[in-house]
Write a protein that binds this DNA or RNA. Structure first.
Lengths: 251, 251
DNA sequence: GCATGCATTTCGTAC
DNA sequence: GTACGAAGTGCATGC
């Protein structure tokens, strides 16, 4: 990771970090004394105080106070930025066209200024009630098909986690991708990526998407890729809340 | 502002920043290579990648990737934290009781680690469609009362911005607080704070809360404080979108 | 592009 | 505390 951090920089140094970071489309983090103006969908002002300012490489623009999860002011991804020094202060403006709105930060002191060019190709695996579906299948494998025998759960491969793997009655490898809601094309693509990890073994690998329903596009892609679909509703009863421990996560 | 920043710290140094920051209830910012586990209302895993981690003094816990406005994982304010070093990595856990949930970050490399003890007493002034109400009143002052003459708009005082100030037919100072929605006790308290700024001038200062309606509690407090209420619906038609310039904000 | 619906929604406010 | 509704909602998905 390429990065630059300055501690207690003066305004000019921070401005340089800012403009370099913007040019490199880096992640920019500034901590400083600022006030904020917003006008667009609504209108707001925030008087002078210590704030944390973050600009992401996709153009997301966040201003955080020292409380609350949510940023006090923000601008969505793909925002365009301009920065200038005026009267010894940084004027940083992020705006977009549709809807027309602008967020302006005036920064008079900076405690920290940094930018980062990082690597992060992973995407979040969110497994809401898929875990319940997984339990159901593990306890009643025949709801998938007669003779299905699950062997592993949440198997980690490069492109993510395979929900359930197992063997069918003929000994073929079966990969299940579970979705607790109507599945779209992304679910099919994900299943396909998982299967690719085992293709070089030259064996038959079946991919089955398990979800309450499929979108038409997903069904089309599924047939094209010769994958299968099984309709299954996630169980609705709530499980007892369990105490969490580190080993639950396999850490 | 008191702060400490380390560039490219090793795990032990970052761990020290983290524990010191937690002890001081400071704002903590870490940038590092990490993976993330969450389990609670839902369940998720995020494999290794460069992330930004922020812990606020109110216990808000945010993990940001380099894209999207929203954090990829988070934990709400008042979360409790534990940190340890295990196998050369930082294990940082934030959790809460109700609902029971935990967010665990495993950090193997850190590019930047810092904490800040900052000052920020200001709160956001959000003036959604109050601006439209303000326009309406400025253009038709008699909807407030016969003889009302507005003199200033968004006047800045220590405790915020006074929406509209003016004089009544007898020359008394009038302070208007506008709310575009049903107003609660906070609106009354705010109006009262504004009035206090002018009390030492020994003149009569009238405070009028202008909103579509009031809660019962607000009405009670209003009468107790001898303030007034005028019912006014905010205009619903949309204004033409205007090009924003810095001077629109008075910068 | 716009419309619809979900979210670990968050956040405030009334109860 | 819980319940209800709004949000500059954001975000994915379908159209």
């Amino acid at each position: 990771m390429k990065f630059t951090t300055l501690e207690n920089p003066d305004i000019t140094e921070s401005y340089n970090i800012l403009t370099k970071g913007l040019a490199k489309r880096a992640l920019i983090i500034l901590v400083g004394y600022s006030r904020v103006y917003y006008e667009g969908r609504a209108k707001s002002r925030l008087d002078w105080g210590d704030r944390t300012i973050m600009i992401k490489k996709d153009g997301s623009f966040l201003i955080h106070q020292h409380h609350n999860l949510e940023p006090v002011n923000w601008q969505p991804p793909k925002s365009k930025f301009t920065a200038e020094i005026n009267d010894g202060k940084i004027l940083l403006k992020g705006s977009r066209r549709n809807p027309p709105e602008s967020l302006i930060v005036e920064i008079s002191k900076t405690y920290m200024a940094s930018y980062f060019v990082g690597e992060d190709t992973k995407s979040l695996e969110l497994v809401g009630y898929e875990a319940d579906m997984g339990d159901l299948i593990f306890n009643n494998p025949k709801i998938i098909e007669e003779g299905f025998r699950p062997t592993s759960r949440e198997y980690s491969v490069e492109s993510g986690f395979i929900d359930i793997m197992g063997k069918d009655i003929n000994g073929n490898l079966v990969i299940l991708e579970l979705k607790s809601r109507r599945a779209g094309v992304n679910a099919v693509k994900q299943l396909e990526r998982y299967i690719k990890h085992f293709e070089d073994h030259q064996k038959i690998v079946r991919g089955i998407l398990v979800a309450p329903s499929l979108t038409d596009e997903a069904m089309e892609l599924l047939e094209e890729k010769k994958l299968e679909f099984i309709s299954l509703e996630p169980p609705t009863e709530l499980k007892d809340q369990q105490v969490l421990t580190l080993k639950d996560f396999g850490v």
